[in-house]
Write a protein that binds this DNA or RNA. Structure first.
Length: 194
DNA sequence: CGTTGGATTGGCT
DNA sequence: GCCAATCCAACGC
């Protein structure tokens, strides 16, 4: 869970097959933990969520609502089943390519939601299980840490269980944060671990 | 094997 | 603010 807020401010990089580079500064994440009823891993491994149960540092990509791909970072060791959903980023590099993929021009509409982010970065099922540490297609660079005081946490968006867990983390006031519809903000994240 | 509904988005009222 | 789009994994029979 603690890695979810730590990903804020880091740079998510995608290298396309033609060699071009796309990048965005992560501004919104959500944590999905072992034993968490809102997590895809809650009922154990399946063909879809298998990557979640593998080693940390890999990309878990899944498809939902008939249209959208979601990008997650696997964060725990083999067998545990955890992930951090990458929900939004501030476009930094390759805005033209992102705009074409998204059919939108305004930067704030390119990566401001989990489905939008994957579409802008040309991420789909083919990158499920991609190596984020040593792989050539997608990775995370250190970026600039976001000061704790600028991080807000809220209930996670779009889930019906686990609402008591304020595990959505965002950069307060950033225009690239998604328009989620969670409950009221709960302020800065708790310092204690679950 | 059929049904259900989803870690969403964008367009329309 | 509301809701259809659109696919498929999960689950029940």
């Amino acid at each position: 869970m603690s890695v979810a807020p730590d990903l804020l401010g880091r740079t998510l990089v995608r290298r396309l097959p033609d060699g071009s580079r796309l990048a965005g500064r992560i501004v919104e994440t959500e944590a999905y933990e072992p034993g968490d009823p809102a997590s895809h891993g809650f009922r154990g491994p399946t063909a879809r969520n298998a990557v979640m149960f593998g080693p940390a540092g890999y990309l878990y990509v899944y498809f939902t609502y008939g249209n959208h791909w979601m990008m997650n970072v696997v964060t725990r060791s083999v067998g545990e089943g955890s992930a951090v959903l990458l929900r939004a980023a501030e476009p930094l590099e390759g805005l033209d390519a992102m705009a074409r993929a998204r059919r939108r021009d305004r930067p704030s509409e390119l990566c401001s939601g989990p489905g939008k982010l994957a579409q802008a970065l040309a991420v789909d099922r083919s990158l499920d299980g991609a190596d984020l540490v040593g792989g050539p297609d997608v990775w995370i660079e250190s970026g600039t840490p976001v000061p704790r005081v600028r991080v807000s946490s809220t209930a996670r968006v779009g889930v019906r269980t686990g609402l008591e867990r304020p595990w959505r983390f965002l950069v307060a006031g950033d225009p690239s944060v998604s328009r989620g519809r969670p409950g009221p903000p709960t302020g800065r994240p708790r310092t204690s671990r679950p």
